[in-house]
């Protein structure tokens, strides 16, 4: 009987420093993460602040003040610890980083649907 396939996890990383995404993805590649989806997002705080500026009325219109990134990737469970290691290294390098949020969720089923070859 064949070995049971390794359990997979959905890793969700939310980083509020858009300019560090490149470094993060490079770290992921280094540990063998084959792919990820990067979404632009905005934090609740920035949306709340947007409508109530005192002096910075224009700032809410510019992406660097509103941009977080959400990175999604389905990975084998064995890689998860390495992902945490990459995040730890990133946070350690940048003393001013407030936080990088990371959550892992169990994936029941994962398929890549492709068009069958002729």
């Amino acid at each position: 009987m064949a070995d049971a396939p390794e359990a997979k996890k959905l890793v969700v990383v939310i980083i509020d420093r858009a300019e560090l995404v490149d470094e993060l993805l490079t770290g992921f590649l280094d540990i063998g993460v084959p792919g990820a989806t990067v979404l632009e997002s905005r934090g609740m705080g920035s949306i709340i602040r947007q409508e109530m500026p005192m002096f910075a009325g224009l700032a809410s219109l510019f992406p660097e003040h509103t941009g977080s990134r959400v990175i999604l990737s389905v990975l084998p469970e064995s890689v998860i610890e390495k992902v945490y290691g990459v995040l730890d290294e990133l946070v350690g390098q940048y003393e001013d980083m407030q936080s990088v949020l990371c959550a892992t969720l169990p994936v029941e089923d994962f398929h890549i649907k492709r068009k069958p070859s002729e």
Binding site: E51, P53, F55, A56, G57, L58, S60, L61
Partner: peptide
Amino acid sequence: HQPALARPAAVLRAVSGLAS
């Protein structure tokens, strides 16, 4: 915060920001 007013509000903020 009402969707219909998002653009007018953004314009209001933009003109105000520049006027300052």
